[in-house]
Write a protein that binds this DNA or RNA. Structure first.
Lengths: 134, 134
DNA sequence: ATGCTTGCAAACGGTTTGCACGTGT
DNA sequence: ACACGTGCAAACCGTTTGCAAGCAT
């Protein structure tokens, strides 16, 4: 897996360094991780890295279109690898679980709404806060 | 207008104090204001209040269902009076303008999606980031 | 050799909190 | 009078930044 990753980084104009490769690897295994979570993962795997580096790398990845940043909670952001497969999120208010989904009806409707108001849709964020039905 | 406001506060278990009345008044005139903006509005109208008070009052208002808090930008929150008329927002990425809208098709669809996944929709946030069509 | 990367610690910006004082009921 | 509300300054927490040292090309 590492060879491809290396190439991706270089295409993005980023030198393939250990911190970047390791962070990429963590992102491949878990979704919706915070900078802090990624940092702790690295530390607990005995890879000594600075939290600042994690933030810097994540920002670079975001600018390169490699990851997507979400702010489900106002207080902190989470990151996920950009699989170029757009989806939205559902967050369970009890468990904190995050479910991904995609709905074509809503997607189209959003564009129509923007257009109706004289705008072009460039992005959107939609989060459904839900509770499990018992 | 102040009489009603006074009553609203008391029903929420909040004493009707000057800071609260003034903040309420500002919220009645402008939508999507940040704590800082409300604070500066007060100061520039020669009403000396602490920024901490503004935050405290806004939080109390939010808990009382009097205002709604939004995080369009990850860095800061904005507040609007809860007119009990649900709507979503469109943010122009160029000008920062905020447009409110309501779409029944999307609303219904969101509930269907939640249900389809075994959840009940308790809330949602949807922001469309748009650009003016020239 | 060069310029991008990194770690550290300090700074940042929005928000919250402890405390002593002030105010509505 | 009493509990609640307030201002101030300090603390907080996630995130960013300046700097000197380190590494990829």
């Amino acid at each position: 897996m590492s060879e491809n990753t290396k190439k991706n980084l270089q295409e993005a104009g980023l030198k393939s360094t250990l911190p970047r490769l390791k962070i990429m690897e963590i992102l491949e295994n878990g979704r919706h991780l915070s900078a802090e979570e990624i940092y702790r993962d690295l530390i607990s795997n005995n890879y000594d890295v600075g939290l600042a580096t994690v933030y810097r790398v994540l920002t670079q990845f975001e600018n390169a279109g490699i990851v997507i940043k979400h702010s489900f909670e106002a207080s902190k952001s989470v990151y996920e690898l950009n699989d170029h497969n757009h989806h939205d999120h559902m967050v369970c208010v009890d468990s904190g679980d995050i479910i991904e989904f995609h709905d074509e009806i809503i997607e189209t409707r959003q564009e129509e709404i923007a257009k109706k108001h004289g705008f072009k849709l460039v992005d959107h964020s939609m989060v459904l806060y839900v509770k499990k039905i018992k």
